[in-house]
Each structure stands twice: as C-alpha cells, then as structure tokens.
Design a protein around this nucleic acid. Structure first.
Length: 414
DNA sequence: GATCATCCTGCCAG
DNA sequence: ACTGGCAGGATGA
C-alpha cells in the first residue's frame, strides 16, 4: 500500500507553463486537494480517487475506482458492477475537463501582457495558473466558507464537512477520501448546530440555509447557470452570448441569481461564476484584489475611494475591458502573485523584530521548490532573516518559516 | 447609495 | 497567561 505503484500511472504531455499544479491546486480556488509527503496530489472526484504529480514535460495521473479501495462490508454480489468499473476508463477525459486544459495559457498570458504593462511585469514568475472547472456546488460551499477566513482554515472546514456529511469513496495511504455532500445531505435539521460544533462559526447558518434553498430548487438549477461553452462533464456545448465590458448576459444573470442565496455576496458569487460555472469574465474583488486595484490601477481615490458595490463593479469592468473575456483568469494570476508577496511582507516584518533566517530555494525536479531553512545566531543573540531569490518564495516557504518559528518558540519555553 | 457594527474561530503580537 | 487585532465577506440597520 505504502509505495506508489508506478505501473498504474498514466501520463499527459503538458508543460509547466501551461499548467503548474503546485500553484493551481493551492492558490485558493479549490480546498479539497491533499498533498502527500511524496508530493502527490489526490482528490475524490466523480466516484474515483484521482492522484497527480508533474515534471516539466508531463502530468502523471492515476485513478482508483472505489471498488478497489473499500474493503467490502457489502457482499460484492449484492450490487451490480457500475458502468465506471466495467466501461472504458474516462479518467483522462474527466481530468482534461476538470483541469480545463483546452485554453492556450501561453497565448493568453501574451495577450494580457500586451494589453497591460503591470500584468507583463508580475506574471513571468507565476506561469501555469489555470482556472479549474470544479463542480459548481463544491465551489459554492467552499467560497461561502471563505469570508473572513484563510485558505488553510477553509480547507480544514471543507474537510470536516466532507468527512461528516459526504460520501466516502475510499482510502488512500490510510487516509479517507470523501466527496462533497449533496445539498440535500446538508438541508436537514440540526446541520447548522453540528457545523457550529465543527468550527464553522457564523458560516454554519449560511451553509445550512443555502443547502436548503438549493435542494428546494428544481434539479440541475445550479448547473443551469453555467456558461454554455463550459458544460458539465459529458454535457453538450452551447453558445455563451455576446461579449460586453460588464460581462456576457448569462454571466450577469448567474451572478444575480447567486446573490439570492444565504452568505453569498458579490465576491462569493463571482468566485462561483468563475471557478464553478465557467464564466471566465467573472472577477472576484476581495481585499487583496482591492489592494492591487488601488496600488496598480489607480483606484482608491475620488468616486472610487472605498470598496462599495459601485466600486466593486467598476473594478471588475476595468479588468474586463483591460484583459477581455478571460479577465478572471488574469485576475487569478495577479491574485496569486499577491499571495506570495504576502509571505514576503510577513518576512520583512520579522526583520524589524531583529530576527533573520537564511532561506535557500533550489529548483526541484518537479517544478516546485525545495526549501532549506536554517536559523543563524549573531552578535547579541540577534537572529537575522534574509530571503534569497525572493521570486521563488512561495506559500511553502511561509509554512516552513512558521514551523521554524514554532520550533524556536518551543525552545524558548523549554 | 454609502457606511458601520456584528458575526465565529484560530492565530499571533503585544 | 491574557487580550486586542485581524483574516481572501455578508448582512442588517
């Protein structure tokens, strides 16, 4: 069980410039992927467990159907074999759909860079960031949890939601993999209380209430809000309508509909439009993006001094007219660049506290970064912090810095 | 239409 | 050991 059976892995040729899973899977658009110590990413999706890892030329993938994962408490004869187990493996098609590999990212980056000098300046260190096509309901639940929250805690909450209410698909490396619970599963009485126990805070009511609302809508209501050009897996493609700087009509309608749900404001609605419904022009404006808009795009003064509803729309319109139909994709690149900058600012802050850590980053074979950190003492117990090749400091570095900080804290307490 | 307090929790800094 | 401030927002007044 422990070792990876390499024979099972298949590969898909794709460059890191076209897709970088280490960035894409943890830049805050999906909260269910788990990364093992081996560097392999795994997720329960569509009745199977998918695993991924990557090198500069290939994306390696593996799919395990539930029948091989669950030791059967149910007698095998009692249930007929599913189509999935018998039919041709559609995992490659599912993956290509989920990872949204169709759009030519290099071409898009070039296009955004040509029309925006700021994008051209920021983007080169953040290639391969792609908007996933995750299920709309999953996106909705995840982003309702995102208010006043951080990626780490959102992931923990979603994990608890799944392990308490979601269907168990199987085990991988001793870890249980659950899918997202259906709205119906969260619509019953007592859900809000339970979610509060699980640490959801005021978002517990939002989840329970929205689940009830969605469950009462006609079947397929949420997916009816999709971009017809980005149908559900296996669905038929339609036409998305005419482009305008405020977005296509279908996008605006979807956004408006989502606003009727509990705990869904403009920002969460845009997250769901972009990452759950396939509307590439949706631009979620959170505090980070608002800061970017002020710093680099002259917002924050005069008519748009604060982030009101009107300003929110103006920021989106500005980015849509600047970047075009896939503005939300470009926005995610700058957003992710800002996430990394956040870790740099944190470190810079530490310097003022007269602490310094030497952090070396080296290219890893898999395109990620292997980070080695050591703490050095100087002079009168003054520890300095320094970042080398700061362009490569990412969230992993932040995590590592926090770990070393905890370690030194423990040492001090001891 | 814009502003503001409030909401849960976990984490950190003072 | 305690406490105020804050984090990728939404809601109601």
């Amino acid at each position: 069980m422990g070792a990876l059976n390499l024979a099972e892995w298949q590969k898909l040729p794709i460059t890191l410039t076209e897709l970088c899973i280490n960035t894409t899977l943890r830049c805050g658009q999906s909260f269910r992927w788990r990364k093992a110590d081996t560097g392999v990413w795994s997720l329960a999706l569509q009745n199977r467990i998918i695993s991924l890892h990557q090198d500069p030329q290939y994306l390696y993938y593996r799919s395990i159907p539930p029948s091989t994962l669950l030791s059967p408490p149910t007698p095998p004869a009692s249930h007929p074999p599913s189509v999935l187990e018998d039919g041709p493996d559609d995992t490659l098609e599912l993956l290509k759909h989920y990872l949204n590999v169709e759009p030519d990212l290099s071409k898009l980056y070039a296009q955004w860079s040509a029309s925006d000098a700021n994008f051209a300046r920021r983007a080169p260190d953040f290639t391969g960031i792609r908007i996933l096509r995750q299920p709309a309901w999953e996106a909705l639940v995840g982003f309702i949890c995102s208010s006043n929250n951080n990626i780490s805690r959102i992931s923990q909450m979603i994990h608890k939601l799944c392990s308490n209410y979601g269907p168990l698909l199987g085990y991988l490396e001793e870890v249980a993999y659950h899918d997202i619970p259906e709205p119906r599963a969260l619509a019953g009485p007592g859900v809000e209380g339970k979610l509060r126990e699980l640490g959801f805070g005021y978002r517990a009511r939002y989840i329970a209430e929205t689940a009830r609302m969605v469950a009462e809508k006609p079947e397929g209501w949420l997916d009816s809000l999709r971009n017809p050009e980005a149908p559900v897996f296996g669905g038929k493609m339609g036409s998305a309508g005419k482009w305008s700087p405020s977005g296509r009509e279908g996008y605006r309608e979807a956004h408006e509909e989502l606003l009727t749900l509990q705990g869904v404001g403009p920002k969460v609605a845009d997250c769901v439009c972009l990452m759950g419904l396939g509307w590439g022009e949706a631009v979620p404006v959170d505090t980070h993006v608002w800061q970017i808009a002020q710093r680099d795009y002259k917002f924050g003064k005069g008519k748009h001094a604060s982030l009101t509803k009107a300003t929110y729309d103006a920021v989106g319109d500005k980015f849509r007219s600047l970047w075009g139909q896939e503005a939300g994709w470009a926005h995610s690149v700058l957003f992710t660049a800002d996430l990394r900058a956040f870790s740099e600012r944190l470190v810079a802050k530490k310097e003022e506290v007269k602490e310094e850590v030497v952090v070396k980053t080296e290219d890893h074979a898999e395109g990620g970064a292997e980070i080695v950190a050591e703490v050095v003492e100087r002079k009168v117990k003054v520890v300095k912090r320094e970042i080398k090749r700061e362009a490569e400091v990412d969230e992993a570095t932040l995590v590592l810095l926090e770990e070393s900080k905890r370690r030194s804290k423990r040492r001090r307490q001891a």
